[in-house]
């Protein structure tokens, strides 16, 4: 073997050795991924075809009953649609409140920008549980938000233990992710380009609509993908703020896995979430191609 390598021209060895290094470098992460992600997903997929027995038992089987049952049950159809709609709503709300902040941060400079960026990221240092409890305190029936609304002469609406609460809580929790994604995608937005639009006769609004918005679309797409995926899979906030009224995929998976012990159904729902992720990713890459194209 060694003699054979001696005969080989020096240049010919190079590609194979760099490929070898690449494989060696990729191997650990591939292994971690295989053991930590792919294997469990296969297990989950397998579990979704088992049979659930009353009382939490599982019978080894190969049946599509969980899948067909799920897709024929109006409760679950509604739950899936509700999950997607609520997540889209949260994504939109997060985008609307984060966009101006991200734009301001993008334009800020120096120490001020660093300070503000740290301020934006700092909520990530606190757990979602703590932040959600914060919202519970704020949105409570006699809480500060309700008091402010009442002092303006309005009947404060119910803002907690329903979809409104979940949307408010998750929107705030997802804002740092959205702001960071937006800023990451704002690279093409050169202030000179905005100035060019202004000098060419565009009002500030039309400058925004025709120049700033199109140029920030990649950031918007990235932020929306991230927030959609995070919100459809988020569990803590809906659980704490939903008051048992808001049925979402993530909370339902928890209930089925932990309370009802129906693991096959929980696995089926988990696979469904994975399918929705895939769909979201497909939409994202399509949108990105459209923007870049």
């Amino acid at each position: 073997m060694t003699t054979a390598t001696f005969d080989m021209p020096v240049g010919a060895q190079k590609p194979s050795s760099t490929a070898g290094i690449a494989v060696a470098l990729l191997l650990p992460i591939a292994l971690v991924n295989a053991i930590g992600f792919i294997l469990p997903v296969f297990n989950l997929a397998r579990m979704s075809f088992n049979e659930a027995l009353p009382g939490g038992g599982i019978a080894e089987a190969f049946t599509a009953a969980n899948w067909t049952g799920l897709l024929q049950d109006s409760f679950y159809i509604e739950l899936i649609l509700n999950s997607i709609m609520v997540s889209l709503g949260i994504t939109l709300a997060t985008l609307l409140v984060s966009y101006p902040i991200a734009l301001y941060l993008h334009r800020a400079s120096g120490a001020w920008r660093t300070f503000l960026t740290v301020l934006v990221i700092s909520p990530l240092l606190t757990s979602a549980v703590v932040r959600t409890y914060g919202w519970i305190a704020l949105l409570a029936e006699q809480g500060p938000v309700a008091n402010v609304i009442a002092s303006m002469g309005f009947q404060p609406p119910r803002m907690m233990f329903n979809t409104t609460g979940v949307v408010i809580g998750l929107t705030e929790i997802l804002m740092p992710y959205m702001i960071l994604s937006l800023m990451a995608g704002f690279g093409r937005l050169d202030p000179k380009v905005e100035e060019a639009a202004r000098t060419l006769g565009a009002t500030p609004f039309r400058t925004f609509w025709r120049v700033i918005l199109p140029l920030t679309l990649p950031g918007i797409a990235l932020g929306c993908l991230l927030c959609f995926v995070l919100s459809i899979s988020s569990f803590i906030t809906p659980k704490l703020m939903g008051g048992g009224r808001v049925f979402l995929l993530a909370t339902e998976i928890y209930d089925q896995a932990i309370v009802t012990l129906n693991w096959p159904l929980a696995a089926t729902l988990s696979m469904l979430v994975l399918i929705i992720f895939g769909a979201a990713l497909a939409v994202y890459s399509r949108v990105l191609r459209m923007i870049e194209g």
Binding site: P54, G55, G56, F75, N162, G244, R245, F247, T260, N262
Partner: peptide, 24 residues
């Protein structure tokens, strides 16, 4: 409880369809 285990899914379903929606 063992008899309940058999009807528990049905009870849960009724909660979701006939109780919780009334509180929204």
């Amino acid at each position: 409880w063992l008899a309940v285990a058999k009807v528990r899914d049905g009870i849960t379903e009724q909660w979701r369809r006939r109780i919780i929606p009334l509180s929204r």
